[in-house]
Design a protein around this nucleic acid. Structure first.
Lengths: 121, 121
DNA sequence: CAGCATCCTACCAGATACTG
DNA sequence: CAGTATCTGGTAGGATGCTG
């Protein structure tokens, strides 16, 4: 089978979509180190580039830019540029992305619970 | 901040756990191309190595082995070896992993729905 | 069957410098 | 402020061959 790229820095091959179940599709769009985390931080609020950078520990400008661009392209983020000086750009969730809120809420709860089990005390 | 490895082929740095929210912890454990998919395929059934390989399109022996070992180490899979010839090894979800079922169910539904929106027709 | 060992490469992602 | 451009190393992950 043809190699399907799957990293945080790629978008899905549109021609291969019919081969994928919803899970694989979702993993393709959200997989990687930063994407889910970025969406999660944008829950119920728009944030600027620099604000995102502050609350995403260790991300570089480059990676943040790349991830934001892909999330935008995949219909998960809105990017709004305000024609001001200095420039201001805000990112917020699309309706599609907001439907993911229950998913990451559940994932977060699980993470907290599982961590307790694995690291008691 | 110290670089925190985050790939499908590493386990979390236990000393850094206090810095992480449940989300980051969960992403660390489940991130990457295969892990969530493997767990998903094991829902409600135990599978053998070769069976997993068949239903995971494109995975290599090497990657499947690596991912299974990490999932086992992180407390998400049970590995049962039956002392037979030829050898038989079965993998099944732990209780912790079973608590993730609602997460990937929701993710799967979202993937299906989002794909419809992005690719009408 | 269920893997491990080895080798190899593409490319992810960090560091740094620069720009409108 | 909100990004690009460029260079680079590390590693994810593929191919192949072998073993208990």
């Amino acid at each position: 089978m043809a190699k399907r790229k799957m990293t945080s820095t790629n978008s899905i091959n549109r021609e291969k979509l019919n081969d994928l179940c919803g899970m694989e599709y979702a993993i393709d769009l959200l997989g990687g180190r930063w994407k889910l985390l970025i969406l999660y931080k944008l829950e119920n609020r728009a944030l600027r580039f620099i604000e995102l950078k502050k609350i995403l520990p260790g991300i570089t400008d480059r990676m943040l830019t790349l991830q934001l661009r892909e999330l935008e392209k995949d219909g998960l983020l809105h990017r709004t540029v305000y024609p001001e000086v200095p420039p201001r750009v805000e990112y917020r969730l699309t309706d599609s992305a907001e439907k993911l809120i229950p998913v990451w809420k559940a994932l977060e709860r699980w993470g907290d619970a599982h961590r307790e089990v694995q690291l008691p005390g």
